[in-house]
Amino acid sequence: MSSSEIYDLCTRFLRAYQERDLDMLRQIFTRSEELTVLGTHQDLRFLGWSAFETSLVRQFSAMQDTDIQITDFRSHVFAGAAAACAYATTLYRGRVSGQDIHIQRLRLTLTLEHHDHSWRIVQAHWSIPADGSLLNPRPSTPQPETTASAPGGHGSGTVPAQKAQQQPALAAHGGFPSGAATAFAVYRQLAATVTERLNQGTFDFASDIAPHADEYFIEIADGDPLDLTQMKETFIPVIDAIAAGASFSWSVELEHARYLAPDVALLITSARVSLTLSDGQLDTKRYRITNLLTRNASGAWVFLHQHRTEIPAE
């Protein structure tokens, strides 16, 4: 599958969404119960086509005059062309339940798998840039003109809160594929090691993070998509805070896991990252994260991609 073919499928998806063409979306997405879709806030996470289709019907009933334009697009084919990932930044304009929405940087990750001689979307993740985060404190970005729903989400302009809370969620459970569970064990150990070395003042990005990422690694967090070199800079404020007397913690939990192709794992995780400042003040961020990992030539699990959405702290 070429980059142009991936781009074409991505544009077909966005066109079908803005035209509320459910039949086209049925052809583009896998309709299995292994489909995972993460929306723009914590209640919007769906496991399986039936749950996502119910959400789409509800969204479409409230949408009007939607226009979605791609402003940045990247893609990567892996696993011997058996799977692919696309990253898009989009400009979203529309009306939802009579309210105008304008989001300048609505980010989208799509993971594709080859099914029955055609490509299908097996995972999607929407997010809106936050003002900044503990690991990525960037200048504030343009905010939506209203709190109404963005794609993949139900906001105050669509579904009442009590209905949004009833959406099916990804349930943490056992019985994950053994390889995917092994990949997560590597992830959890990475978090523990980085936590320890940051607090000891011995952290080194080149040895503690870089070996765990593929050369094509992309992270979507609170600003623009980051490659490995750019990601290194996000640790600087944490290192500075620790040097000033703060302590750091990073924990991760597994919500869902599956294989996309041989030696490629999709993990949906939650994470909590905290800084306790010298005066006792606590700064905590919580995220829901899409992770793609693959086994490299030496057999070690490494990250291909991460896309995280901040969720409110408890």
Results as ranks from 00 to 15, higher is better:
205 F>S: 05
257 A>F: 06
117 H>T: 14
302 V>S: 04
38 L>K: 06
188 R>E: 14
244 A>H: 11
309 T>L: 13
283 D>K: 12
176 F>G: 10
274 S>M: 08
235 F>A: 10
81 A>F: 01
83 A>W: 03
189 Q>S: 11
77 V>Y: 00
293 L>C: 06
234 T>G: 03
180 A>V: 12
7 Y>I: 02
260 L>R: 06
72 D>Q: 12
120 R>Q: 14
282 L>D: 04
2 S>A: 08
199 N>L: 08
149 S>M: 05
122 V>A: 15
130 A>Q: 11
66 T>Y: 00
79 A>W: 04
294 T>W: 00
85 C>L: 09
313 A>Q: 10
120 R>V: 13
245 G>H: 07
114 H>L: 13
43 D>C: 07
91 L>G: 01
156 S>P: 00
106 L>A: 09
127 S>H: 02
293 L>N: 03
222 D>W: 04
300 A>D: 15
281 Q>M: 08
126 W>Q: 06
246 A>Q: 07
299 G>E: 03
88 A>E: 03
290 T>W: 00
57 V>I: 14
155 G>K: 05
62 A>D: 06
146 T>A: 15
87 Y>Q: 13
234 T>A: 02
201 G>L: 04
226 L>S: 07
311 I>N: 05
166 Q>A: 15
192 A>V: 13
161 A>T: 12
196 E>F: 00
178 S>D: 13
5 E>S: 13
111 T>V: 15
168 P>R: 10
135 L>W: 05
298 S>V: 15
94 G>C: 10
57 V>T: 15
109 T>S: 12
218 I>D: 01
23 D>Y: 04
76 H>L: 04
73 F>A: 08
228 L>V: 04
196 E>N: 11
211 P>R: 12
210 A>Y: 08
100 D>F: 09
13 F>W: 11
5 E>N: 10
41 H>G: 12
142 P>L: 09
184 F>K: 04
301 W>C: 04
185 A>C: 06
38 L>Y: 05
90 T>G: 03
251 S>D: 13
291 N>W: 10
222 D>S: 13
12 R>P: 00
70 I>Y: 01
169 A>C: 05
259 Y>A: 14
204 D>Y: 02
237 P>W: 03
168 P>W: 01
17 Y>W: 12
186 V>A: 13
274 S>E: 12
217 F>G: 02
156 S>M: 07
105 R>N: 11
154 H>Y: 03
305 H>R: 12
69 Q>T: 14
12 R>V: 00
296 N>K: 06
278 S>P: 00
164 A>Q: 14
167 Q>L: 11
175 G>E: 08
210 A>S: 11
107 R>F: 02
148 A>Q: 07
21 D>E: 06
172 A>R: 14
146 T>N: 15
91 L>T: 10
193 T>I: 10
78 F>I: 08
154 H>F: 09
9 L>F: 01
49 W>D: 02
116 D>E: 14
260 L>P: 02
47 L>G: 09
186 V>K: 04
31 R>V: 07
202 T>K: 09
184 F>S: 05
33 E>L: 05
141 T>R: 13
100 D>H: 11
276 T>G: 01
256 H>S: 13
279 D>L: 03
280 G>W: 02
287 Y>T: 15
60 F>M: 07
295 R>K: 15
